[in-house]
Design a protein around this nucleic acid. Structure first.
Length: 421
RNA sequence: GGAGAGGUGGCCGAGUGGUUUAAGGCGCUCGCCUGGAACGCGAGUUGGGUUCACGCCCUCGCAGGUUCGAAUCCUGUCCUCUCCGCCA
């Protein structure tokens, strides 16, 4: 969440930035509640102070075997007042917290202004397609012809939107995951993590998925657990309620996880094959960094994610999201999109975001500076990358006239072959 | 799933209703001592709210309750450990 001090101090600037993100939260109402809350707290504290003093007096009177009747009766009243004020202030505090938890992060000054995806900015484009003189197949045809996955049977088992990889498809999926994990950990210095896939409700609150986006996640009601929509959720919460020494920053994690998303409201959009799934695999990058380094770290993280596509010989581009297209928790975000030759579309395979202190504040994640003071650190993350659309691009881009698929060189040791035919 | 034990500061650990304003120790930081160090001596060392500030208040897993007053008593809840059962 954004800080209430910031809202108090720079009210008009906060309003302006929220408007850029298309948010309509009532800041004036929030500030009014905040004012009321603080006045109640001050009042209660004064009474508590009085009670503390008189309580000591009661103790010493009793020790000397003197009557403390007057004081006790007096404090009975004070105690009641305190409890009344507390009830009221707790109610207001809850309201304030609810409002704050539903206010999105403020966009960074470098984020371009805009309303929707058409206002996003192209940052760079990389890679070329090979020229073909034959009709290329889409990933569904390739998968069927080469027996790589089976959507009909997946639907029989689970329903639509669930993947069933078969044979060399299953192995290719595993190879991609292992390749990406090794690339990020061995080449780029991220520490490998394997997280739980079910989390309590505090964890998605840290990342910003709850309370606002409960509809997007699968919930296990019996045990009050949630299936993770991304490894970002468990990984970011590794350091929840911790104070990390400045000399240990930055912390860089890479993690594979299965991801589960209800995709409520996106039915009928890009639903063919692997384009949109309820369950998919992803390798995720997460960083905990000093505030003054976070934008530098975002550039580096984006480049790390791009390296996957670059090394696999795929055509991709990097898009800078505009204020209106930015996700709830992000201050700045680059999307990486890979080209699908058969769909003739750019497919989003990664979102690399700087959340600044938004998540750190929600999860109470701090760092201790060298001077001994503590402050919220900054968190970042990005996919490095999600497999389904990567697989789509890979199959389609590297297919041959005879229907076989060339496996890019860096992937060959993981897959165990240079071709699928 | 059943039975039991327990959660106190960075760590260990005392504390069963009122000078606990959380003892004592370890660690860490600073100072003295020293040629330099060790030892020793002294000081500091949870996090948060509010205030221009001094200060005041909260914080003993979490949430309620009893009481003039709760780390301490009661209820619920979460977590950890031990034993039993089940199990990849």
């Amino acid at each position: 969440m954004i800080s209430i001090e910031e809202i108090r101090k720079n009210t008009s600037l906060v309003k302006k930035k929220l408007a850029k993100k298309g948010d309509k939260s009532s800041i004036d109402n929030l500030l009014e509640l905040d004012k009321e809350y603080r006045s109640l707290i001050t009042n209660a504290n004064e009474l508590r102070s009085e009670r503390n003093i008189v309580s000591k007096k009661i103790a010493s009177l009793k020790k000397d075997r003197l009557s403390a009747k007057t004081e006790i009766n007096q404090m009975k009243e004070v105690g009641e007042s305190i409890s009344n004020i507390e009830k009221e202030s707790n109610k207001i505090k809850k309201l304030i917290d609810t409002i704050l938890l539903n206010i999105p992060n403020l966009p960074h000054d470098s984020t371009p202004n805009g309303i929707g995806s058409k206002d996003n900015k192209l940052v760079r484009e990389f890679g070329k397609l090979k020229k073909t003189d034959y009709k290329i197949k889409n990933h569904i045809e390739l998968g069927r012809d080469l027996n790589l996955f089976d959507f009909d049977r997946a639907a029989k088992i689970s329903g639509s939107g669930f993947p069933l990889y078969t044979n060399r498809g299953a192995k290719l999926e595993r190879a991609l995951i292992n390749y990406m994990l090794d690339l990020h950990s061995l080449e780029f210095g991220y520490v490998e993590i394997f997280p739980p896939f079910l989390v309590n409700s505090k964890s998605p609150k840290t990342t910003g998925n709850l309370p606002k986006f409960s509809e997007d996640m699968y919930q296990i009601e019996n045990d009050n657990l949630w299936l993770i929509p991304t490894a970002e959720v468990p990984i970011t919460n590794i350091h929840k309620d911790e104070i990390i020494s400045e000399k240990n920053l930055p912390i860089k994690y890479v993690s594979y996880s299965a991801c589960f998303r209800r995709e409520a409201g996106s039915h009928g959009k890009d639903t063919r094959g692997f384009l949109r799934l309820h369950q998919f695999n992803k390798v995720e990058l997460v960083k905990f960094v000093k505030p003054e380094k976070s934008y530098e770290e975002l550039e580096a993280l984006t480049i790390n994610a791009e390296a996957v596509l670059k090394s696999l010989g795929l055509k991709y581009r990097v898009i800078e999201l505009c204020t209106g297209d930015l996700s709830f928790s992000a201050a700045k975000c680059y999307d990486i999109e890979v080209w699908s030759p058969a769909e003739e579309k750019w497919l989003e395979v990664s979102s690399c975001s700087n959340f600044e202190s938004f998540q750190a504040r929600r999860g109470n994640i701090k760092y201790r500076k060298n001077d001994g003071k503590t402050d919220f650190l900054h968190t970042l993350n990005g996919s490095g990358v999600a497999t389904p659309r990567l697989l789509v691009a890979l199959l389609e881009s590297h297919q041959n006239k005879n229907g076989s698929i060339n496996i890019p060189e860096p992937l060959q040791p993981y897959f165990g072959s240079n071709i699928i035919d």
